[in-house]
Nucleic acid binder design. Structure first.
Lengths: 190, 190
DNA sequence: CGGATCGTTGATCAACTTCAACGGTCGTGG
DNA sequence: CCACGACCGTTGAAGTTGATCAACGATCCG
């Protein structure tokens, strides 16, 4: 299953066949079951995760004590708390599996070594971060532009399969409103 | 003034003194006055900007026709509409100077050439994007965690000098509420 | 000096939350 | 394999947060 990461790297940069195993050796394969946590609030955020199969979510506890999901990651997405990861700090976030999930994990120091041994991986991660930042910039625009109701319809139209894939209360949280309000929105258009 | 970019690059990666001028030759220095636009909605987004001095803002027109600011960039920050920049598309955003501003501009193709001629710049931009993405992830958390009023107090406390530097109606727009509401918030605590 | 721009104030209104209660369904243990 | 409990989605009433609109004062700049 790990050839999936190699495939993803190859879609972005040219690597030597001889280097494939060496690159993969930097990563730890992990399997976690539904509702299991990869990272918990209060811990040091040491790892960066690549999703091979399944779905992760990133959430924190807001002041009311409810879980606020801010990101999902499905197949071929990278995820971590980047601020904590870069600075080797404790995180406020929890990373939890929404489904049974397989990931490749790499620690910060190992990632640094990987980048030194294979400078082409600098380009790979440059592209990954550039795209992630662009997506984030666009998402911020949506958050400012759309009402919560419009946000839901826009999301459901853009990612119909994903909208079915996750429970409604997680989707509501991700879109920034309550499950009750999502119910109301859905009632209107059916 | 362009040595400022070299200084910024050096803070992140090691470059040869001999390469400095060659690197700088990829960039176009530009000076724009207050309220002048570097990029306008509807245009192709061809350039990436590094702020040497002054302040830029990124905004779009929402459905009500009001300017919605989503980002500022001050000294030593990079800015563009990254989605449009990467895909050579038209942008929905306008980039405008909040103050008289000096920038270095680089076009997409030139940036690609720069990265090929100086692979160490892959690492530089990887770090830039990684940090920008981390900041964006944190900002998203704040947007979900804080009420508009808390958002203002948190921002004013974190960036007191910047809060003074820009007009209130731009700050209100950036924080996602109306100038009238900002007035009300300020009244409460004075 | 004069006009445009910016910040303020107060009244009314809309979007969304909160809380409590109910019904369906899913999965787990007996 | 069935029954029970926990979890999830829905409904409706009442409450908040922040928007809208209009009007006024202050300030800045030409």
């Amino acid at each position: 299953m790990s050839e999936q990461l190699i495939h993803h790297i190859r879609k972005n940069v040219a690597i030597q066949v001889d280097d494939e195993l060496s690159i993969l050796s930097y990563f730890r394969p992990m399997h976690i079951s539904k509702k299991e946590n990869l990272l918990e609030a209060g811990q040091l955020c040491t790892s960066h995760y690549f999703v091979l199969k399944g779905c992760l979510r990133l959430f924190f506890l807001n002041e009311k004590g409810t879980e606020q999901t801010t990101q999902f990651a499905i197949e071929n997405w990278w995820l971590t708390d980047y601020m904590a990861f870069q600075h080797n700090q404790r995180t406020d976030f929890t990373i939890q599996a929404v489904e049974p999930t397989a990931v490749l994990a790499i620690d910060f120091q190992r990632q640094e070594q990987l980048l030194i041994q294979f400078p082409v991986m600098e380009r790979y991660f440059r592209l990954i971060y550039q795209r992630a930042y662009a997506a984030s910039q666009l998402r911020t625009k949506y958050l400012y532009d759309f009402s919560r109701e419009e946000l839901y319809h826009h999301f459901a139209k853009s990612y119909p399969e994903f909208t079915q894939r996750v429970p409604q209360y997680l989707l509501a949280s991700f879109l920034g409103f309550t499950p009750e309000y999502l119910s109301e929105i859905r009632k209107k258009r059916s």
